[in-house]
Amino acid sequence: MTVSKDKVVVSIRDLHKYFGSLEVLKGIDLDVMRGEVVVILGPSGSGKSTLLRCVNLLEKPTKGEIWFEDNLITDPKSNVNKTREHIGMVFQSFNLFPHLTAKRNIMLAQRKVLKRSKEEAERIAIQQLEKVGLSDKIEYLPAQLSGGQQQRVAIARALAMDPHVMLFDEATSALDPELVRGVLDVMRELALGGMTMMVVTHEMGFAREVADRVVFMDEGVIVEQGTPAEVFDNPQSPRTQDFLGHIT
C-alpha cells in the first residue's frame, strides 16, 4: 500500500485555549500529513481531548491558527459547517441519534448536508455498516445495540461523509474491555486503508501497533513526539517516563 505522506492535512500553529481563566492549551504546534495516524497520549487533564475538539471547532480556539488543507479554519469568515463535512469525529459517548435506526443515523447527514439521494445514502449506509461488521443490525435502534456496536455505527456514520481526516476522542473509554477489541479492529482497518487519523486514546497496544507518530501531551503542551518505538521504548522527557512507568 502506497501512502502519500507529503501533504499536510491539518496544521496547528501556536494554539491556545482558555476555559475562563484556566489555560488548557498553552501553544500547540502540530502538523498531520495525509494518511498519517497520529496518536495523542497523556494523563487526564493534559488537554488532548480539547486539542482534538479544536480541530473541528467544537471548541473555539482562543488564540492561534489551524489550517485544514488549504483553509485557515480559525478565520471567523470560514464556513464552519463546510469544514466539518470533511472532518469525521468519533466521541467517547458515541452520540448516536437515539430516535433513528443504525441505517438512518448514517443516512441523515448524507441526505441533509451532502444532499445525496435517498437511494445513494441508503446504499452507502449499508456498505459502511458492512465494513464495520454490522450488516445484520441495519434496522436496529441504538438502544438495541451494545456499546461497542453503537460506537461502530458512529464510526460508520462519520465515514459515510467521506472525511479527509478522522478524529477519535477516547473512542473506547466508555466500553467494557470485552467490547473494546471490535472497535479497535475497525480503527486498525481504517488506518491500514490509508485514512488520516488523529486518535486520543489510552490503548497503548493500539498506539504502538498502529500509530505512525505518537504525541505525548501534559499540562497543555506537547512534551515529546516521535515514532512509537522512540516514545515507548526510549522516552526522553521525565514526564513521559513517569506517565508510561505509571501505567505499565
Binding site: 459547517n81 466539518r84 463535512e85 469525529m89 466521541f91 459517548s93 452520540n95 448516536l96 441519534f97 451532502l114
Partner: peptide, 15 residues
C-alpha cells in the same frame, strides 16, 4: 437533550 447530540450533529456538518 444531551450536549453530545448537538456536537454529533455539528461534527457531521449540520447547521
Amino acid at each position: 437533550i444531551h450536549k453530545g447530540q448537538f456536537e454529533a450533529a455539528s461534527s457531521l456538518g449540520m447547521n
